[in-house]
Computed example of a mutant assay.
Amino acid sequence: MSSTSRVAVVTGGSRGIGRAVTRRLAAAGYDVAVVHAVNQAEAAAAVKEIEVVGRVGRAYQADVADASVIEQVFGSIEEQFGGTDVVVNSAGIMPLAPVAALDLAVLDRLLRTNVRGAFVVAQQAARRVRDGGAVVLFSSTATRLHLPAYGAYAATKGAVEALVPVLAKELAGRNITVNAVAPGPTATDLFLDGKSQEAIDQIARANPMGRLGTPEEIAEVVRTLADRARWINGQTVFVNGGFA
């Protein structure tokens, strides 16, 4: 592969919003490295979708919170693709419980994946993204909705929002943008899991648009931040149909 090819790294890229992001970036001309945690079959399917549109895709299995493994993965991506231009961290977990009832072991898992994982990926992005590139992290509209049972999850996403403008300023002079995307309720397995159809319909009706978002709608915003919207930097962009 030529070192002049545009290369994107997408964590959590085998399912849900991350999978839609890999498709959208591939369609925009990026070769894509898909970083996934467990599901090798889904990751392989994501790579096939990248290849269908004529781009190069490769899958890498890693825990985003494992700094040494993520460093090795980014090193392999540089060797195999020639460099990195865009890093998107969509890996995350969303166990829900009221603050009074939350098992602190669950809190530790949330902090490890959603905060440490985002930081580890952002750290590698800061070290490796080529000048003129972009870093896109994921927050959530849950930071504004203040819904019961979302306290721990929203707290982890608030940490991501705090990180973004700091990193944007630290990368000054390199023409690298750093932003977060904060989706509202979106029709993914992560969001739908454990919810009754009645609860899903109620959430959809509460949105001014009368429905849930789609992964493709979120992916389009990520694609825009990747290389089109160069004057958006250090921001959290809420993509929620007016939900909050």
Score class of each variant (00 low, 15 high):
178 V>W: 00
178 V>T: 07
178 V>N: 08
129 V>Y: 02
187 A>C: 06
131 D>M: 13
119 F>C: 12
188 T>W: 00
120 V>N: 10
157 K>W: 07
174 R>S: 10
177 T>G: 05
132 G>I: 01
132 G>D: 14
136 V>L: 13
116 R>S: 09
141 T>I: 08
168 A>L: 11
165 P>Q: 11
155 A>L: 08
121 V>R: 10
141 T>P: 03
133 G>M: 06
143 T>C: 06
110 L>Q: 11
160 V>Q: 10
184 G>D: 02
160 V>K: 10
111 L>S: 12
128 R>H: 02
164 V>Y: 15
117 G>C: 11
144 R>Y: 02
162 A>Q: 14
179 N>A: 07
155 A>M: 10
180 A>C: 11
171 L>W: 03
179 N>Q: 07
159 A>H: 01
171 L>T: 00
135 V>S: 15
145 L>N: 04
140 S>R: 03
125 A>S: 04
168 A>Q: 12
115 V>T: 10
127 R>N: 09
173 G>W: 00
157 K>F: 08
108 D>I: 00
177 T>L: 11
122 A>M: 09
159 A>L: 11
185 P>C: 01
136 V>D: 03
129 V>A: 10
151 G>S: 04
145 L>W: 05
150 Y>R: 10
167 L>T: 02
187 A>D: 05
172 A>G: 11
189 D>V: 01
131 D>Y: 06
152 A>I: 09
135 V>R: 01
143 T>K: 05
148 P>N: 13
184 G>W: 00
149 A>D: 08
109 R>F: 05
108 D>Y: 04
130 R>Q: 11
127 R>Y: 04
110 L>S: 15
137 L>F: 05
152 A>P: 08
183 P>H: 02
135 V>F: 07
184 G>F: 01
112 R>H: 05
186 T>S: 05
174 R>W: 01
191 F>N: 00
167 L>Y: 05
159 A>E: 13
128 R>G: 12
122 A>N: 09
185 P>M: 01
109 R>A: 06
172 A>I: 02
151 G>T: 04
186 T>Y: 01
109 R>D: 15
